[in-house]
Design a protein around this nucleic acid. Structure first.
Length: 431
RNA sequence: GGAGAUGUAUCGAAGUGGUCAUAACGAGCACGAUUGGAAAUCGUGUUGCCUUAACGGGCACAUGGGUUCAAAUCCCAUCAUCUCCGCCA
């Protein structure tokens, strides 16, 4: 969300930005917002005058009552009552205009960073760099759920009976691998100086509506029946919720957190052929990183954050590349965003495993996340977030890239870094 | 889940419908005076948001509603904390 004053002073710049994102249908919103703001201010001014008058007269009534001059007091009461309707009407206007303005402001996209490539949609995203040689195998790699099955590691059928489509049982070594990777990712981030955090896995509706639109909420969030609670779709929601309407002393910046949570998503909508197996499911676990920092440092943090993801995947022998989101594919709140994609030797292409975003001050403005300087002045922080790992997808990449086949049996080699979390094993073998 | 209590500025705390509350009093903090220097003492300042060129004005006493000419104060709902009981990893 942009600052309405900024929009008012730079309408052309805001419109130019909308065009860069190929969202021309949003152009009228700019003038609409300015008109709403002016109208709101006008109602506000008028109501302010009436309220000031009421306060003054009420004080006089108090004084007169104290002196026992009842009749004079009654006369003034009548004056206040006379303007009550007018004030009420203005107050209704004030709230309505404010709500409308907020609604419009939420739809006006954030100003994208000048470095972001211009493009219509995800087909025009730009590869930045590849890391590691693309893995090639001299045998046919089974589909990821089939790999898991070789190790008796997955039961989707039972999960279907118990919970329905979109769930799985992970078993034995594969389940252990899942936990190992999560624990490794956690420690990896702690070593980078991030504070480990386990947040609430359910959040209130006011937090949900603070972080996403109604449509997004409807498509993603599971509601707890009879309670004002939703299961988190990502721990980022509860993590950023921690900072809503807070003022943090500047000396505490940057705040760097890594959080773990299970994530629950309805995933309304079509599932493509590539999304079979455990690529897209209703319940998964995720280690996330978020940073709240000084605006001057946010780009620096952005680069650190995606490079941590690259480093983590490389330490597990998974080739990755970074892909920059073009203007048209960038969500409204974002200033700049990189996806980290892992190489799938099975599919012969990269697929998304992490999404790193710099939201500038847009999210902070929307949620009231402020920073107080030594001298007392305040500003909105910059917020960033990135996936550390989301195990199902990480496991797909991990298994495909580390799979071995000796002609008879399959095995998966465990990279050095992960062995302490796998009881020292260097390999897991097919039964 | 049941019973009770509490929620006011950085902290403690007073304030039970008005005229003496933006908020006493105490502490902390900042600046100044005093001092050879410090302590003590004295003085000044010390919440946020909106609006204004400025003066000023408005809003906010956990949060959201309501009653009233007027609400920290009365009423309703919600949330949090504490104590006791119950239940439970």
């Amino acid at each position: 969300m942009l600052d309405i004053k900024f929009v008012k002073e730079n309408p052309e710049l805001v419109k130019e930005n909308i065009k860069r994102k190929f969202k021309d249908h949003k152009l009228p919103l700019v003038d609409e917002a300015i008109a709403l703001y002016d109208a709101k201010k006008d109602a506000n001014d008028k109501a302010g005058i009436l309220r000031a008058n009421r306060n003054k007269l009420s004080k006089e009534i108090g004084m007169l009552m104290g002196q026992g001059k009842k009749e004079e007091a009654e006369a003034i009461k009548a004056q206040v009552t006379a303007q009550a309707d007018e004030l009420k009407a203005l107050e209704v206007q004030e709230t309505e205009l404010e709500a409308k303005l907020k609604d419009v402001m939420m739809k006006i996209p954030n100003i994208v960073d000048p470095s972001v490539p211009v493009g219509k949609d995800d087909s025009e995203n730009v590869e930045v760099k590849q890391y590691g040689e693309k893995t090639e195998k001299n045998f046919e790699i089974p589909y990821h759920t089939d790999i898991m099955a070789k190790f008796d590691g997955i039961d989707k059928e039972a999960a279907g009976r118990v919970a329905g489509e979109g769930f799985y049982y992970l078993m034995g070594d594969i389940a252990r691998l899942h936990s190992a990777v999560t624990a490794y990712a956690r420690d990896f981030m702690i070593d980078k100086g991030f504070t480990y955090c386990i947040p609430p896995f359910m959040i209130r509706s006011n937090v949900v509506t603070g972080v996403m639109s109604f449509e997004e909420m409807d498509a993603m969030m599971y509601k707890i029946e009879g309670e004002d609670l939703y299961l988190v779709g990502t721990s980022e929601h509860s993590m950023i919720g921690k900072f809503i309407d807070t003022i943090t002393p500047e000396s505490k910046l940057p705040m760097t957190l890594t959080s773990y949570s299970p994530c629950f998503r309805k995933e309304k909508g079509a599932h493509g052929i590539e999304e079979r197996g455990i690529y897209r499911i209703h319940q998964f676990e995720k280690q996330e990183m978020i940073v709240v920092c000084d605006p001057a440092e946010s780009m620096e943090w952005f680069d650190k954050m995606w490079s941590y993801s690259v480093e983590l995947f490389r330490s597990l022998d998974i080739p990755v590349r970074t892909l920059e989101c073009c203007t048209g594919d960038l969500a409204d709140l974002k200033v700049k965003s990189y996806d980290v994609e892992a190489w799938s030797p099975k599919q012969g292409k990269y697929f998304e495993v992490c999404s790193c975003s710099n939201l500038g001050d847009a999210q902070a403005r929307r949620l009231g996340i402020r920073v107080k300087k030594e001298d007392g002045t305040k500003y909105f922080a910059h917020t960033l977030n990135n996936t550390v790992i989301a195990p199902p997808r990480m496991l797909i990449a991990f298994l495909e890239n580390n799979l071995e086949f000796d002609g008879e049996k399959y095995s998966v080699k465990i990279p050095e870094a992960l062995r302490p979390y796998m009881g020292g094993k260097s390999v897991i073998e097919e039964n």
